[in-house]
Design a protein around this nucleic acid. Structure first.
Lengths: 279, 279
DNA sequence: AAGAATTTGTTCGTATGTATG
DNA sequence: GCATACATACGAACAAATTCT
């Protein structure tokens, strides 16, 4: 009894077979980024399918961010290096149709970011630590405030980043855009030090989604500079804890910092769930 | 100076415009799951594009999991309820082409799972707690071991789940498949209690990817029953901590449990990064 | 610098298998 | 069983874009 088990045969479309073949070639490494696929007409001969079928398959692969094809390119479609664009798209869709609340997104960031910081406190190199300090210095510069605190970091502001072409912002006062960039650079340095690419990509994606939802409200805040100063102080505390190797403290500080920064925009019914992470 | 800023005009394909229109209709809620799109021929009239263009757009939408079309369906393509399938696909691709190591995946699970447990310890209802206990009872039943420990949980094994049709496994001994299902049910109950859908989906996706990588090795282990017993004991300790409302303890126990379970399959060079989370 | 050759983008017509009534 | 409408698939044709000569 029970030797053979049959599955219902789902009618597999021709274009899916094409997608599978090319996908397999890419994911297995037989096709590496930068290499070219055969032209559509040659693919249609090699695979013995019509051109429309080939094109539909290429569209799917393009939607997944695996290849790109340009009109007139004598070579075929180009195999792309992986980018989290498809992941970003999926999560954005998820956020819209599943009505992911801002609270959930911020909570997710608090979890992943504090984990990254916990790991970074253990695994960071001195260069990575210097990169974090540099980013905070850039935040200070963008906030237009002389100094945030009495921290002993000897690194001065990185060259060139910031006050070159911010449209509509004056000099020496506040450059919201540059501040945001420096903030991103800080967190990038942290997740890079954590050594976990998955955390890196997910935090990156979620950060963009969060920012898209509240960028307007942050820009409209009239106490921006005060917010920036507090954020800078928090970051400096985090760096100090990382430098001291106290991961749990650094992680807790980072959760607190993110809570303080984003909580005003989260629905009141959800802030308690955020505070549950502050402990 | 600087008033108008021009962007390079990227030639936007016709099919992309079609994708955007339909996508917008779905994400905005104008089209809800279960509803039907117009037929391809009608879309091609409404949008004044050719048939192939419509089809390529539908392929992209199908690849994103937003619609599904079947041959012969008198209605058009069906709008689907959101499923994390596209997210899963993206992450799987990421894991393959970026060579995400098993260590990174397990680390990610440790972070998200322990966060979910921390939240669940605060926010769970009694029903959700009962569901977790039920899942652990099912794990005990599947492991074929009389009792895992002297824990005082009064719930007996849930009805029906488990020993009905495991192929090739005897009765009363070990049913690896049922054990896995019960384990999944436990973690599902936890993330449901955490109240964060994003954590739920991400843990679900990553769990499947991890399992796909090491399922064979787990099946081949000859001390499976010992592993199961230890896993059950760990889960019972976690439940006890959740019941007591001690979130940090529950989270720490869960990280330890996952480390014990998966560390043997992780490269030795990576286990230290995992232990960094154990604190 | 201009034109030829090739490739993708798009349309259209046709044939086939399938689901619904 | 039959008619209808649909998706699937093929392939020819033309337009637009790119590269090479």
């Amino acid at each position: 009894m029970g030797g053979a088990r049959f599955e219902p045969v789902r009618a597999v479309r021709a274009y899916e077979r094409v997608v599978e073949q090319i996908e397999e070639a890419i994911e297995s490494g037989a096709l590496t980024p930068g290499q070219r696929l055969p032209s559509e007409r040659e693919l249609m001969v090699q695979l013995s399918v019509g051109r429309s079928t080939v094109r539909e398959a290429l569209r799917v692969l393009q939607a997944r961010g695996l290849v790109r094809s340009r009109p007139g390119d004598p070579n075929g479609a180009e195999v792309l290096p992986f980018s989290p664009a498809a992941l970003h798209k999926s999560m954005t869709t998820l956020a819209r149709v599943e009505e992911l609340s801002l609270g959930e997104l911020v909570q997710f960031r608090m979890v992943l970011d504090s984990a990254a910081i916990l790991l970074a406190a253990r695994l960071r190199t001195d260069e990575q630590l210097a990169g974090m300090a540099e980013a905070v210095a850039a935040m200070r510069a963008a906030a237009g405030t002389g100094s945030g605190s009495e921290s002993g970091t000897g690194t001065d502001s990185g060259p060139g980043t910031g006050t070159d072409s911010g449209p509509g912002t004056g000099w020496g006062v506040v450059d919201t855009e540059a501040f945001g960039r420096a903030d991103v650079a800080f967190h990038d340095a942290v997740v890079a030090a954590s050594g976990n690419k998955l955390i890196q990509i997910c935090t990156d994606v979620v950060r963009q989604i969060v920012l898209r939802q509240i960028a307007a409200r942050i820009d409209a805040a009239d106490d921006r500079q005060a917010l920036m100063r507090r954020s800078i102080r928090h970051h400096e505390e985090v760096i100090a804890a990382i430098r001291a190797g106290d991961g749990p403290l650094a992680a807790q500080l980072s959760r607190k910092a993110m809570y303080d920064y984003y909580a005003p925009y989260v629905a009141e019914s959800e802030t308690s769930a955020l505070r549950a992470l502050l402990e």
